[in-house]
């Protein structure tokens, strides 16, 4: 079962698709009014990769990064299944509660 931040990270990575990497994921998360430190981001990415829900690899260096490489992220099939389970679980448990009916 995923944690809330893990679900958030997988969702953002899935939405970004081929452009999912550390800084882009962080920017997306912060755009949702969530704070996301680099420490939280990369330790969560590592944890999800260990669980087999993400795959990461080093991308090409780019000039706007001072010639440094990106850590690219892709959601695996297992990651998609885990995210679906989390989403369905939240939807099921939220039925009939006041905040979900607004």
């Amino acid at each position: 079962m995923l944690g809330e931040f893990e679900y958030l990270l997988i969702s953002v990575a899935a939405r970004l698709g081929e452009n999912a990497y550390g800084a882009a994921i962080r920017e997306e998360i912060e755009a949702m009014d969530r704070t996301c430190s680099i420490g939280a981001l990369y330790t969560t990415i590592d944890r999800l990769e260990k669980k087999g829900f993400l795959r990461t690899w080093m991308g090409d260096p780019s000039p706007q990064r001072g010639g440094r490489a990106k850590r690219m992220v892709r959601v695996t099939k297992e990651g998609v299944v885990a995210a679906e389970e989390f989403y369905n679980s939240v939807m099921r448990t939220s039925q009939g509660v006041s905040w979900a009916m607004k």
Partner: peptide, 10 residues
């Protein structure tokens, strides 16, 4: 390398 790149980019 990755972290310094991220910090430079933002």
């Amino acid at each position: 390398e990755v972290v310094l790149g991220d910090l430079t980019e933002v």
